[in-house]
Design a protein around this nucleic acid. Structure first.
Lengths: 183, 183
DNA sequence: CAGAGATTTCAGTAATTTCTGAAATGTAAA
DNA sequence: TTTACATTTCAGAAATTACTGAAATCTCTG
């Protein structure tokens, strides 16, 4: 497969950004290529389009699968594996956020709890700091858990309303009438 | 300086997580150490505490400064530089988010706009996909810009209210009475 | 402004990560 | 089964990134 100039530039950009995003260049390029392809692609096509080795493609695809970022498809009468990215961009964002949380946040939250469990270490400042950090992460992951439940439409609405909600909290101190529980 | 077991374990964890967060081990360790220290530390102390070279400490501190993650302090009668992390954890989170956005999102947004400017490339699917991605990133960065303005207290309130706001959007379809503009 | 102390730079080395080609393994249909 | 792809594994090579020690630069202060 030969890439169009548009695809080419997009793919190269994602390759370069890969390192900043914690993935390697090849993985970024494979993902970018799949993202722009209306049809699922097989490993051989990807290999050829990106000019990399077949084994590198295999490893890259495995990595993307471990991130849940690609879907496996099959073409009737062809036993090769074909890959695509989800049509819904919000689904991609959700997956990305979920996986990053799992890899970048959760292990630290566990470690902080573990450190707290070990009991007083005679270093009040450090202990307080760790507790504070754990609480903050718990608050953020709690908020995230709520957002995760929302499907796309409501999430978009929430983001669109963002500024107004913020302004309202400002004015009412969070006592938004419709949100106050009645007894 | 000799680390307590608590500090030691925390520092090592941040070092290991460093690579997942896109920073190197040393930078993670330096930051962790400063985070747990009630007093500002100078480069020599850090070098000794972490068992690394003086030049590595220098480079690590420079990196942290480029991320705006540390503050420079001075002790009267001592001309060495001392470093701390902000007391306010929310400030740290803000900085982290702002810097990651700057490094991980903004360049891609620019690139997408640039690609769109280049005009029709005769690849409708890829063009649509790029436009959609740009729109999504613009929406998210727009929301972020709103949130960035809120100071800690209101942000905490918003996160705490998170689930209720989400529920409300659910029920009203976004037509939250207090938010609907009257003419 | 000389000298002591503090910090940064940088070339070389070490460590880590990425990539490849070849071999091994898996799998469907002949 | 056997055969013909298809995919994965893996050891070593290549590339990149991190780290060190020595030298250079910067900056106070006596």
């Amino acid at each position: 497969m030969r890439l169009t100039p548009l695809q080419q530039e997009f793919v190269l950009h994602f390759g370069e950004m890969g390192s900043r995003w914690g993935i390697n260049r090849t993985v970024g390029q494979i993902y970018a290529l799949l993202f722009l392809s209306s049809q699922p692609l097989n490993a051989e096509t990807i290999t050829e389009a990106l000019g990399i080795s077949r084994s590198n493609t295999s490893m890259g695809l495995k990595e993307l699968q471990s991130w849940n970022l690609v879907r496996l498809k099959h073409v009737p009468g062809d036993r090769r594996d074909y890959f695509t990215t989800p049509d819904d961009l919000w689904e991609i964002v959700r997956t990305l956020v979920a996986e990053r949380k799992k890899r970048e946040i959760d292990p630290t939250l566990s470690k902080l709890r573990e450190l707290e469990m070990q009991g007083p270490a005679g270093d009040d400042y450090a202990e307080a700091r760790i507790a504070e950090l754990r609480e903050l992460i718990e608050m953020m992951t709690g908020f995230y858990a709520e957002m995760e439940r929302l499907e796309t439409e409501r999430l978009v609405k929430l983001m669109t309303l963002g500024s107004r909600i913020a302004g309202l909290i400002d004015k009412t101190g969070g006592m938004i009438p419709a949100l106050v529980k009645r007894k």
